[in-house]
Design a protein around this nucleic acid. Structure first.
Lengths: 234, 234
DNA sequence: ACCTGAACACCGTTCAAGT
DNA sequence: ACCTGAACACCGTTCAAGT
């Protein structure tokens, strides 16, 4: 492996939980989340898989740990989790914080998938949500409406949204969406109609794929605007 | 296993792809998605795991297949995928279809997780989306706006939303959200404030857990209302 | 206190062999 | 044509043994 430490010349750096988690993040960034196994992670650190158990309880603890490591990266990117004092600017403030979270997630695209498998909320995650809630509260929302709002955001509060059917890297052209579309065109009148216009709007791309950033911001603004309206009519 | 076929008395029903997929759905319904392994599925059918490969290409094909089986169940629940002729009722029609999809997903809670791992859209899924798009189109939406709308719905179009941190069945009380909340109360002023009011609103439950159905419908209506407004101001 | 090697109980999948 | 048994290349994890 490219990043393996040369144990013959390099004096052995003692293993710590922090080093294990940092190596786990690096491994997932480089080779994808499916490459994050105890054996491969051990190999990356120049150690047997079983040695890792001296520093973390089990693999679940590693997955909890890497999510926390990413939350720390987000806290740094935001300059700390704080509720800004200009409460009336809640919309721009929340929007900006969510788009920063999105940047962090785009740097570690495997993180959303791991977050979805977590069953507990860690303290740092809780602090992130606390200040998100705080921004809404200082923006004049009732706790009742703001609670609904947090549910409405869902994963968007953390900067990602479920893009259903993200096409895989290894593309079998025979079961490509384009091929199916041609073959089923008569059964899919509205999809065909939509595609024709999307492609027209975006002449650079052949098959009119979507700009994820634009779509994310569209959905985010739809929710933010809707919440503002509910706040003002309550 | 309770549902295993008694091969000594029952004449052997020939294995087919349909029987394999039906058994896979039943197994996941009963024991959870993690129980759906080739070996266990074979055992359920009174056959070795390797026999399954005579009827499906591999495990991925089984996962594709069970999603399609659920989509067929949805098609039946909806009485077919059709675009109703009363286009002006688009909002109620789309809302009703999505809530029906949600009922199907609640009958098979493991399905959303499987859908999230799919990389291709199957023909039946495509037909579902085609008619969803059709409802919006006949409701007076431009293809451009309706395309954004589909992205904004995300998984909600299929009746589920990413409930972050769904608490697990096996609850370690020490890392329960309640315990952490007490311990971190001073660092989480807004969460504490919100909780105080949510619990007050809902005196039946001790810790003020959320009604997922209510929250799903809130988010859904927020998006539907926002889209209607955009359609009318465009 | 930390690391290792062997082992256990699982995976998905292949392949040659059976009927 | 369909099913089987053995095997391969992986998993996470336990445990006794090393230093």
């Amino acid at each position: 492996m490219a990043t393996e430490i040369d144990t013959t010349t390099t004096p052995r750096i003692p293993l710590t939980k922090e080093r294990v988690l940092a190596a786990a993040v690096a491994l997932a960034d480089r080779d994808g989340i499916q490459a994050l196994s105890m054996r491969k992670l051990g190999h990356e650190l120049g150690v047997e898989a079983m040695s890792l158990y001296n520093h973390v309880a089990n693999k679940e603890a590693i997955l909890d740990g890497v999510v926390d490591a990413i939350m720390e990266e987000l806290e740094e990117a935001l300059g700390g989790f704080d509720v800004p004092s200009n409460g009336s600017e809640w919309k721009a403030n929340l929007r900006g914080r969510i788009l920063t979270a999105r940047e962090v997630m785009l740097r570690h695209k495997w993180v959303p998938g791991v977050i979805e498998t977590r069953t507990t909320i860690s303290p740092i995650m809780m602090r992130y949500f606390d200040t998100s809630i705080g921004i809404l509260r200082e923006g004049g929302f009732s706790y009742d409406l703001l609670h609904h709002a947090m549910h409405a955001f869902g994963s968007r509060a953390l900067g990602f949204s479920q893009e259903l059917f993200e096409p895989d890297g290894d593309e079998d052209p025979e079961q490509d969406a384009t091929v199916m579309l041609e073959r089923m065109a008569d059964q899919l009148p509205y999809v065909v109609g939509m595609m024709a216009e999307i492609v027209h709007d975006d002449p650079d791309t052949t098959i009119g794929w979507c700009d994820d950033q634009t779509e994310f911001e569209f959905g985010l603004d739809l929710i933010l605007d809707g919440l503002e309206r509910l706040r003002d009519t309550a």
